[in-house]
Amino acid sequence: MKKQEPTPKIDFKSEKDMPLAPYSLGLMLHNFTGAWRNIRPEINLKECIQCGICWKFCPDTAIYIENEYPVIDYTYCKGCGLCAEECPTKCITMVEEEK
């Protein structure tokens, strides 16, 4: 729901630094999956009816809600285009990413 802040990646200098028990040390938020993207979604907020469908169907949880409007987190958006396809007013458009 809120914007997710990247977490640091932990560098292990040797095997001895690794935890003895197999538990997780943090989230995968250091992995910026936005680099996988070829096309980017852009929301035209003037036509947005605040239905929340884009937020609901995002497989990467890359859409968060700020000031009652959806905002796309380009750090993590993989550019699958589900939000643009499912948007009832078609206010999300997929734009070619500039390289």
Binding site: Q4, M28, N31, F32, W36, P59
Partner: peptide, 9 residues
């Protein structure tokens, strides 16, 4: 959370 390794869509 974001950052997982699933394919697009």
């Amino acid at each position: 959370h974001s950052g997982h390794l699933a394919c697009q869509g």
